[in-house]
Write a protein that binds this DNA or RNA. Structure first.
Lengths: 210, 210
DNA sequence: AAAATATCACCCTTTAAGGGGTATTTTTTA
DNA sequence: TAAAAAATACCCCTTAAAGGGTGATATTTT
């Protein structure tokens, strides 16, 4: 068994204080090495492959190319790199976009360096660390509306509708007749004040009914 | 300003060692109070409202009613309670189901009590703590397939399709003609080897293309 | 016992979707 | 900078799936 070399870190963050602060503390209080820091993605672009980082700490609000747009590029340049996002303002969409595009972790900027170092350890071990507020947003995005007007069966059928299944497939899956599925569908439409599958799916997503 | 009373904790966990271990350590090393512990949800059902907990630590694998099914019932009984799930085996579906049904946090059972106490603090402060492995699963569930055969535009259109929008709405939203949407749709179908919107959505969900 | 939920059936109408073909412009990449 | 890929747009024709209306019985929950 070979000794794994300690992870190499690159920080891309426009605020000099934060950038240098994290770099200093990671270098001096952790086994990891910050091999380079950049104030923007555009300045990192041509050098980062040679830096050969294992983990990139990437700010979202950057001058020029922002962190979200940088993500897929970095992933293409360095397919195996772990990316931890850093941000001040976190909207649900931003967070979800970042994660959808391959971020491994997500923290707000008030995160103490010690937590960030923990996070680096977690990602290289295959985990997906997030600060509690980010996790909360993610959880919320997964959570259903507890005040749904739909019954259990209706919710179930609506959910199957959102997956693109048609009446026949839904009926088969639930071991009921197509006509029963129709009846439920009509009740769903009436409760949601819509009159098409498409609208129902939109309301469902909108109100987190499924 | 009144002093907030310290959070009251209930633990529902069938393994006596774990149950009593957590209870003891929470009571003795944290400001929180474990007001009751139960070996099953069924045994907790009639008493838990009187326990008036702020946070419930809920095991998933329970004799009788399992933790996932217990979740909605607990939420109805105690609408404002925070629930932290505890589990040994975590499949993606289990985790996502738990979160969809109102869990506030999610940990695997090897979690040290200190982390659990941190988690209790986090949830009462509105956060959504998860252990890194759970977070990883959640992140993975949000992540797109990096090897999608679709172009950017196609992905965008497929995504809009999954939200139930029809050609017309998609065209309007993207400021292009309906016929262009059609062309993209045809290309999507051909790349995904399908020939209907429904199938496309199913493949999209299946392969995490959107 | 009443109310809510879930089940099944038949009529008829409409429309959004799908197949096939062609062509120009813009953007990306080698 | 030339070639390839992606994005844009139009026409013809066909049909499956969806939707509206109405009525009825069985099962569960409260």
């Amino acid at each position: 068994m070979y000794n794994q070399p300690e992870p190499r870190i690159v920080i891309i963050e426009d605020d000099q204080t934060i950038r240098e602060g994290y770099a200093y503390l990671i270098n001096h209080t952790s086994p990891y090495t910050v091999v380079a820091t950049y104030p923007s993605f555009d300045s990192a672009r041509n050098k980062i492959v040679r830096d050969n980082p294992d983990v990139i700490i990437l700010d979202i609000q950057l001058p020029g190319t922002n962190g979200i747009d940088a993500l897929p590029v970095l992933k293409r340049l360095l397919p195996d790199v772990y990316i931890i996002m850093l941000t001040v303002y976190e909207t649900e969409k931003t967070i979800l976009d970042a994660l959808a595009n391959g971020a491994s972790g997500y923290f707000t900027k008030n995160t103490p360096t010690a937590k960030l170092i923990e996070a680096i350890r977690d990602v290289v071990q295959g985990g997906g660390p997030m600060s509690p507020d980010v996790a909360k947003t993610v959880i919320l995005s997964l959570q259903r509306n507890p005040d749904s007007p739909l019954t259990r069966r209706e919710t179930q059928i609506l959910e199957l509708m959102t997956t693109g299944k048609d009446r026949g497939q839904i009926a088969k899956e639930l071991f009921i007749e197509i006509e029963t599925v129709r009846t439920h569908t009509k009740n769903i439409y009436s409760k949601l004040n819509v009159n098409s599958k498409a609208e129902a799916i939109q309301v469902a997503k909108d109100k987190r009914l499924v």
